[in-house]
């Protein structure tokens, strides 16, 4: 049998990427676990993990991270679904709506955190407006470090504002993959809007929803700058603790333990979503 011409070409094209990913993904991954599970002398130990768990910031960080994920993701999905349905409804200026909803896609966590700081600050916009329309008679201190509820509320709003776009885009792309006949068929059978969403759109969007959920959860575990911008030292999350241990305390072993924990939680959630929300091929396979 004759060899296929240029059979080596695709591998040559992949080589730079593979090499780069090996050096900057695979090796650091292994080293991260090495850092987390070994001491400065190179012996295997769980000391860093013990330090991490015993630290005062750990429980606070873990709890806040989980609370944020549990709150942010449903809010984002409802918002993103509403935006996606609006974009898909073929209103006038449909390109404009898509663009407007997509704007936060380009805004960083840090910028978003500060933008919402301008709103929730004691002398910020929210107080100005609430006082202006007479709901408050003097500024309320939302971002009070004793008052975790408001801190978390502000962070949830900032994250929902910033990171809904990406879910919206994924959902719109998914919606556009659904043939319009399906909606028309549902119309013919007299389905209400709610029925259409539940019976037609959601089931068909399942793969998109799965992707968006996984992506968002992984990113939410890394929430960092938005928390620092809004809460300062009022509360903390896992990434912020990793940063603090690396940067302030200068213990890269504990920092790596935090990083490894974030990775393990991300992977666990990914697997959970894959199991809970099987797409059609997976159900059949």
């Amino acid at each position: 049998m004759r060899a296929q011409r240029l059979g080596w070409a695709p591998y040559a094209l992949l080589l730079p990427s593979l090499a780069f990913l090996a050096v900057f993904f695979a090796v650091p991954m292994v080293r991260a676990f090495g850092l987390a599970f070994r001491d400065a002398g190179g012996d295997w130990t769980l000391a860093s993990w013990r330090t991490m768990v015993d630290d005062a910031g750990f429980r606070e960080a873990l709890r806040t991270t989980l609370i944020l994920i549990v709150l942010i993701i449903p809010v984002q999905f409802v918002l993103a679904m509403a935006m996606a349905l609006v974009v898909n409804a073929r209103l006038k200026w449909s390109g404009l709506w898509l663009y407007v909803y997509a704007i936060p896609l380009g805004i960083s966590e840090l910028a978003a955190g500060i933008i919402w700081l301008a709103i929730f600050d004691r002398q910020g916009w929210l107080n100005s407006i609430l006082e202006g329309i007479g709901i408050l008679d003097r500024p309320f201190i939302f971002l009070n470090y004793q008052e975790r509820g408001w801190l978390i509320f502000a962070i949830v709003l900032a994250e929902a504002w910033r990171a809904t776009s990406i879910i919206m885009i994924i959902l719109v792309a998914g919606l556009q993959g659904i043939p319009r006949d399906f909606f028309e068929a549902a119309d013919v059978f007299g389905a209400t809007t709610w029925q259409k969403v539940r019976r037609v759109i959601l089931p068909m969007l399942r793969p998109s929803v799965q992707v968006a959920l996984i992506l968002r959860t992984i990113l939410a575990f890394q929430a960092f700058a938005v928390v620092i911008a809004l809460a300062g030292s009022g509360t903390t999350v896992l990434s912020a603790e990793a940063y603090r241990w690396y940067y302030t305390i200068r213990d890269s072993h504990v920092a790596a333990a935090y990083a490894a924990l974030i990775l393990l939680l991300s992977v666990a959630c990914t697997v959970l979503f894959l199991v809970l929300l099987p797409t059609r091929e997976e159900q059949m396979g």
């Binding site: 991260a32 575990f221 990793a242 790596a256 990083a259 990775l263």
Partner: peptide, 8 residues
């Protein structure tokens, strides 16, 4: 996560 790559 970026976190796990950055530190090592």
């Amino acid at each position: 996560p970026i976190v796990i790559l950055s530190i090592p």
